[in-house]
Computed example of a mutant assay.
Amino acid sequence: MKKNNTSKLVLISLCVGVNVIGALIAVALKLPIFLDTIGTFIVAFLFGPMAGVITGILSYSITTLTFDPYALYFIPSQIIVGFLAGVLYRKGAFKKKAIMPFSTLLIASCSAFVAAIASAFVFGGITSSGNSIIVMYLNSLGLGLVPSVFITQILTEFIDKMIIVLLVFNVIKVMPKNFNFQN
């Protein structure tokens, strides 16, 4: 039992690091996707929703303190991702390839809604993310700030989360079978 808990803590710590590094890459390169929930998905899929939530909170706390002060305002988005990923995975919402995009869209939409509120009302649509360029473009077309932020957030969140879910399934597939992750 003790080895199992140690293995979980080590993997959660590694996944927090993966999230922070993913966020750093996305911010440094001004990518229109985020790459900051890879570890959150892995932990949520393997250990459940609360472990996913904790991973997301720790990741964004470190990100806020080290290189991206904007991240603090997006912690609620990480909480939603960790929680929904864990719940939906446990309910089998990712087992069939035909259902996976809808499950991912649900997570992305909920996350995007919360993130869009922070982006639009706290930061005026301009954050450290590369998707701010898309927001400015849509706003210049006359859509208005709030619709521009919401459209951009939903689009970029869905693309980001689909990439991450596909990546996470491949990572989980190659993990050693003797690495026991029972709750």
Rank of each mutant, 00 (worst) to 15 (best):
K2D: 11
K3F: 13
N5V: 12
K8T: 08
S13K: 08
C15W: 05
I21P: 04
I21V: 13
I21F: 14
A28M: 11
L31V: 08
F34M: 09
D36N: 12
T40N: 09
F41Q: 06
A44T: 05
A44S: 14
F45G: 10
F45E: 09
F47R: 05
G48N: 07
G48D: 13
I54C: 14
T55L: 11
L58Q: 04
L58Y: 03
L58G: 04
S59G: 11
Y60T: 04
L65F: 14
L72R: 04
F74G: 00
I79H: 03
F83S: 06
L84M: 11
G86W: 00
K91F: 11
G92K: 05
F94D: 03
K97P: 08
A98W: 14
I99V: 15
M100H: 01
F102H: 03
T104N: 10
L105V: 04
A108T: 00
S109P: 00
A115W: 01
S119C: 14
S128L: 08
S128G: 13
S128E: 05
S129H: 02
S132Y: 00
S132K: 02
V135M: 09
N139L: 00
L141M: 15
L141P: 02
L141Y: 01
G144I: 01
F150H: 04
I151Y: 02
I151S: 01
T152C: 05
I154Q: 09
F158M: 03
I164A: 06
I164S: 06
V168M: 03
F169G: 08
V171N: 04
I172K: 07
K173E: 10
K177Y: 08
F179P: 08
N180Y: 11
